[in-house]
Design a protein around this nucleic acid. Structure first.
Lengths: 142, 142
DNA sequence: TGCATTGTGTGGACAAATTCAATTAATTAA
DNA sequence: TTAATTAATTGAATTTGTCCACACAATGCA
């Protein structure tokens, strides 16, 4: 597995560092994590990493397309290592839990309308807001 | 027009203040503005407003449904006064220009998939990322 | 219109998230 | 192994947004 992540970095022309590998592994263990959460997760594995190194690694890897960043309203940015498929996210307003939502259609919806505005669209970002099953269960009458 | 905005506030049980009126007007002149941009726009009209008053007014009005907040990745929150219709946004990666995109369908897409995860969805937020016509024109081969 | 109540604005401090800059350390290529 | 490149560390600055306490303005009622 370590080889996989290392190769992943190499394939994108990034040099291989303990920090980047650890960030990738942390992300794979806990997708939808904030930079801060990743820093903690990484520290559990390799003891120390600077905050800057985390932002650095995340930023570079987002740029190279290894990982993806999502930014829900009122929350720090979240990162995930699942890329390349057109999936979206559902976030619970109560507990903040974030889950992947597969998009049934390959093509994004309403794309025609966007095209009408003359935009050349390369990605559609969809966030569904609601209440997760667990929080629904705790809400009387929910 | 001042009457309109005043009535809008009154209708939602908010008291009418110069700051709120100015924020509403600023928003109507420049939709998709950040809190900071709105503060500047307001200052051009009524000279002074505190940052807090801007956030206050925006927060209250979002809560009451008079305006809407959108939070694109890597940008401060943007506000707009167009509410009640299920429209989305396209943002230019190059210049940051944000335009409204009407949604052809009343129901949000992929909702079934989200429902499968057991979530009770109350809103879908869609952002299309791409290149606007102006930036397309400036990009050779674009 | 005048007064009391309630709500809002102001200004400054504060906090979180992220970025910048300079130095040091690690990685890569020769 | 060594030089050159690239990344990590440290610490401070910036950006974005919030909290607090006091002054002020808006609203409702007489």
């Amino acid at each position: 597995m370590t080889l996989d992540t290392a190769n992943l970095l190499r394939k994108h022309g990034l040099s291989i560092t303990a920090q980047r590998l650890a960030v990738l592994r942390a992300l794979s263990r806990r997708p939808h994590s904030s930079a801060d959460a990743i820093a903690e997760e990484v520290r559990a594995e390799i003891s120390v990493i600077s905050r800057q190194a985390v932002y650095n690694a995340l930023g570079t890897m987002v740029e190279k397309g290894l990982i993806r960043r999502i930014q829900p309203t009122g929350s720090p940015a979240l990162y995930e290592d699942r890329v390349g498929d057109n999936h979206h996210h559902a976030i619970c307003r109560t507990c903040g839990k974030t889950v992947d939502v597969d998009c049934a259609k390959g093509a994004a919806p309403c794309l025609t309308a966007a095209a009408d505005a003359g935009f050349q669209i390369d990605a559609a970002e969809v966030i569904y807001w609601g209440t997760c099953p667990a929080c629904l269960a705790e809400t009387p009458g929910g």
